[in-house]
Design a protein around this nucleic acid. Structure first.
Lengths: 350, 350
DNA sequence: AATTGGCACTCACGACAGTAGAGTGCCAGG
DNA sequence: CCTGGCACTCTACTGTCGTGAGTGCCAATT
């Protein structure tokens, strides 16, 4: 339907519009790009593009602006990723090298990405659901409070406060630890809550004749705390940075930036959005403008790249106005994702 | 200099301006407030207020708007806190009741406050510097990594990964724990780093004749990790919520909301600002407009209230445009601070 | 069949002018 | 000390007009 040159015209329009933030006309296209044809010819092509709803004219007699559909065609067929400059590559390594634990690494990643792109940066935590529990520790705090510490084989550590009735001696605490460990150590996080539930059901089904000791009761209390904590593991998380950039690019958002800031604060919407994007064979993905309508973000675009956290996939991305520089941002998320993947694998193998 | 009635006029101007967001003129004052004098009289008073730089006219012939100095006089001498409605009180309790650990409680607090005021809410963590270490646990993770867990008497729990050379048996880990505990358990967090340093100096000053075992070296590695972690305890932290509200009130900020969003992301600037405010005898404080210039927030105001986390003072507050409803916001932060204080004391005494 | 130059047409935008209304400062009189 | 009155100032709104960018269409050209 649209000629070969027509697509080149679309590319030119997207590029120039992103550049100048002004509707682009046929004349300025022939000036800035070497098409070797006259403005009138370009106008014919533009009419076709408009028929296909790839571009629109804001008012009767003005230049054209890409539609969301136009951007989509652009990123799918026309965008050539702009390779990073060596300075940018250097920035990534200097941000990420020397990171401590996983949290620290992801925070550095998100900062690098926001610095690189000037957009809101998003890093998804690798999913812990398929990790398994490798340690359980108990620390008695006094006053009937006991701390449960859970460590996974992926190195995540988390703690939760449980309330138990009574105080216990050193040896009893050891016995409790053994009892709790027996249920979940070595098992997958995703199954944890169910395992605990089964164990609890078992306990309540026990013959009433069997006397329940305070120790037994404490063990059940602790298991409940463990189940709650494991349930939280399953909820994926995001790290975000660069929200202030929205204020700078505010003019690009027709309405208010309120929904964006809200999504950033909520996280859960954003998490769903990022999770549901589908990547191409290179692990890159983009969600453009009205495609984000179900999430209340019809004026924003997100581009992301998968990264590989030793087995479990997750994403890094940036969010910005629909009128964003897709080639540069795609290249940036890809480069950061690759470097991050490398660091995670090194980390694991040492 | 300014008459009694003059101050009442200032109060009226602040109230009406906050209400309507329009410069307020002498005529509208006599209409909306029962001064019992004519507009011309009010005009004379307004001329005086303008001499004192408590109000200004945006242009020659328009109503007056309070200056930052005017707001200051208003909150210091004129504002009567507007007591919360019972619905609001109910909202606070429903938000805060049933909180789990300290983190959870503060997150709930900040949410309650942003809901109550429609502003950006800020809660400062109680300072941990004067807390003392009550437990140390070690968990060997394999691969030369060992987890150090530190618990304070205020209930804060944190962990840090340490790298040690070699693997150790159950009993040796116990010995390491004892060694580390001996240095810091029962000591104040604020002294922790120094205590560790002294211990390390001692070790390196030991006669070269005394052979150092792998166990000794591991103990030193662990102590270093402990020192780093304790150092982080000393850095105070904030919890924030409601950043999206800035987008709604954007018109109130002459310039951009960029600096505010940046401060929210940075945290450290805000932390300094909140720390350096000085409270009145009721524990309330306000920092208005250009008073915040050193922090790059000349268009924002912060009102805060001290709360008492069993001995260590910290603050809860809200940040918003200079043109904010001070009486309501002051009442809200005070109510939340009081309720929070109560919950923290209950927590501690059970 | 594709391309081109020409031409009439549309529309946003800025400049300019005129009007209405809100609000002020000031003054003379109560 | 207060008040009504009055002249004055400035903003905000409205309408008009010219300019220029850009379009759509068509007949001529390649």
């Amino acid at each position: 339907m649209v000629s070969e040159r027509g697509l080149e015209v679309l590319r030119a329009i997207v590029q120039d519009y992103v550049d100048t933030n002004e509707p682009v006309g046929s004349k300025s296209i022939v000036e800035r790009h070497a098409f070797g044809v006259s403005a009138a010819t370009i106008r014919n092509d533009m009419a076709q593009l408009e028929d296909e709803e790839l571009i629109v004219a804001p008012h009767t007699s003005s230049g054209r602006v890409p539609t969301d559909k136009g951007y989509r065609v652009f990123v799918d067929h026309l965008a050539e990723l702009r390779p990073l400059t060596s300075a940018q590559r250097a920035a990534i390594t200097s941000f990420l090298d020397g990171a401590g634990d996983l949290d620290d690494l992801l925070v550095r990643t998100v900062r690098a990405l926001t610095r690189l792109t000037g957009q809101v940066a998003i890093v998804q935590y690798p999913s812990f659901a398929r990790a398994s529990v490798s340690h359980v520790e108990l620390v008695q705090l006094g006053g009937g409070r006991m701390l449960v510490i859970i460590v996974t084989d992926t190195g995540r550590v988390s703690q939760r406060l449980a309330t138990v009735r009574g105080e216990f001696g050193e040896e009893e605490v050891q016995r409790l630890r053994t009892a709790v460990s027996a249920v979940i150590v070595g098992r997958a996080v995703r199954d944890g809550a169910q395992l605990v539930e089964e164990r609890l059901a078992e306990a309540s089904a026990a013959p009433a004749s069997a006397q329940t000791t305070p120790l037994d009761e404490a063990a059940l209390d602790l298991l409940r705390a463990v189940a709650e904590e494991l349930e939280e593991f399953r909820q994926d998380r995001l790290v975000l940075a660069g929200a202030a950039n929205l204020a700078r690019r505010e003019a690009d958002f027709r309405g208010s930036i309120y929904p964006l800031l809200e999504a950033i604060e909520e996280q859960v919407t954003l998490l769903r959005l990022v999770s549901e994007m589908h990547a191409d064979d290179q692990g890159l993905s983009a969600s453009i403008g009205r495609e984000n309508e179900p999430f209340g973000l019809a004026e924003a675009s997100v581009v992301a790249s998968d990264y590989d956290a030793t087995g479990s996939l997750a994403r890094v991305g940036v969010m910005g106005p629909t009128r964003m520089d897709y080639p540069t941002n795609l290249a940036a998320v890809r480069a950061v994702a690759r470097y991050l993947t490398r660091m995670l694998h090194e980390e694991n193998s040492r």
